[in-house]
Design a protein around this nucleic acid. Sequence first.
DNA 1: GTTCAGACCGTAC
DNA 2: GTCTGACGTATTCGG
DNA 3: CCGAATACGTCAGACGTACGGTCTGAAC
Length: 566
Amino acid sequence: MTSSTTFFDLAEICEKLEKTSKRLELASILAEFLKTVNEDEIRPTVLLIIGKIFTPSDPRSLEIGVKTLIKTILKISGITKEEYSKEIGKFGDIGDATASIMSKGIKLNQKTLFEVPRTIKYIFSQLLTIVQSTGPGSRKKKEKILENLFLRSTPIEAKYLVRIILQNQRIGVYEGILEEAISKAFHINLNLIKRANMILGDIGEVARVALTEGVNGLREKAKSPILFTPLKPTLAVNADNIFEVLEQHNYHTAFELKLDGARVQIHKRGDEVRIFSRNLANITQSLPDIVEQVRESVMAKTVILDGEVIGMGPDDKPLPFQYLMKRFRRVHRIQEMIKEIPVKLYLFDILLLDDKNLIDLSYYERREILKDVAGNISLVESLTTDEVDKAEEFLNYSINSGHEGLIAKKMDSKYFLGTRGKNWIKIKRIDNLDLVIVAADWGYGRRKDWLSDYYLAAYDPDQNDFSMVGKTYKGLTDEEFETVTKRLKENIIEDRGKTVIVKPEIVVEVAFDEIQKSSNYPSGYALRFARIINIRSDKSPNEADSVSKVRTMFEKQFEKKSRLVN
DNA sequence: GTTCAGACCGTAC
DNA sequence: GTCTGACGTATTCGG
DNA sequence: CCGAATACGTCAGACGTACGGTCTGAAC
């Protein structure tokens, strides 16, 4: 049991996992492996497996991305950038490409390689050192550590090191499978594991507690939300129409406005307020105005609140999401920006009140409690109805008020979803345009043999040219990728490696949520959440929608939304 | 020594 | 953020 | 009535837009 596992063992397990696709098998393999890991290494091991080194307890990140990684590998291997890119294209994976280069390119010093005990803990601590180094010269320092790490890696270790650093393991295992594996390894009910993961927000810590303290320890920790430890927020699934939603919820649904902002989870004890983002990052310092408001309005001793922060114009109409982003996560010139871009908090849920756990109450009960706690902070407008027409009307009201749509919440649902599935359902309105594919990127991973990411352009009749308004890789089936790739390959004008310029010929119907101002695209506009919903074989490129139509649609958005000068 | 542009990165959606 | 496909399980269908 | 077909929920992995922050290195 105490036999220590090495990074090599972990890499081998990853290799094994990557080769299997069956979910149950994945969980079994992982469970067996977890049983061999000791108390000291269980948390690092679990976090390394999913390439998610950084959690609420280690809030900062590596700040090492593809570019830096490529740079270091080039340095230690001596190959050219072109050769590396070619290799990446061949494998459709940067990890495999790196392993290939390492196995033929680098003369490893076998002695140093095996002298160094490359335990999981060691690798983890090296990565943490990278995380913790900041300030002038930190870049260089990080690269040096990386270099050393790779110089002491076998090819297979290098492969998974690369993927861990990029937080993209692609071995078929993420938190869901991991939860199953932990459940199997330590014989603990899966729902308890899921609940603990939601409350602790750290799957590595869940595994550690499961191993060291067993069911009872886990149960104790998962009992109730912990103040100042952010918990994973419930998320909503999509639906097309209101009828479908009502059916799903047995006609016991509260519809809430879906605001286009950022999710916040607010923890408060006395005067101490902390605000967390959807991904559990602490963003308190960016929102001092919200902190102040919560301090003044919420009288409860301890409380955890769930809500949305949106940009709000002086005319009381919501601001486009882009404006909010200027405020969120900001650390400089905050006071200035508070005046420039006003932000407003709306609450819609409460998870803890005066140390009492509320997540196991029904939505309805929580909402009633929230009303009393919120003081003069606005609650998200809501409507409880079982009639399609009334809900439809409310949806129109939401859209006309400049919001995204509705979110339907099952009246009797707990905050914790367990195995039940999603009890929150969102309904949005989408727009669409007919656009032309003018270029494409080769795909990655399972899409490596397809041109799978398309540059979309609107028609400009004045210039008889096409002006780009965004990219998309979403909406096509495998079969459609196959045929579109074939067609595009015949139309290649210029081959730039990863990107290919094609003759503008294929017209696609593209759905999107919003048109944004863009400095990235020549047209000056970009589509938010673009996805292809149809291949318009019946349309020729000059029948595609025009740039001026895009502009008109962009301007039209401000009939409902607010806009700030410059 | 200071300033500034650009590359790179993480993270809201 | 959206979307597709794979897997597992629950439910319905057809002989 | 039971095995086969289908429906449904969940998970993972494809990658998009935008923004600000930090570090580096060149120009002054």
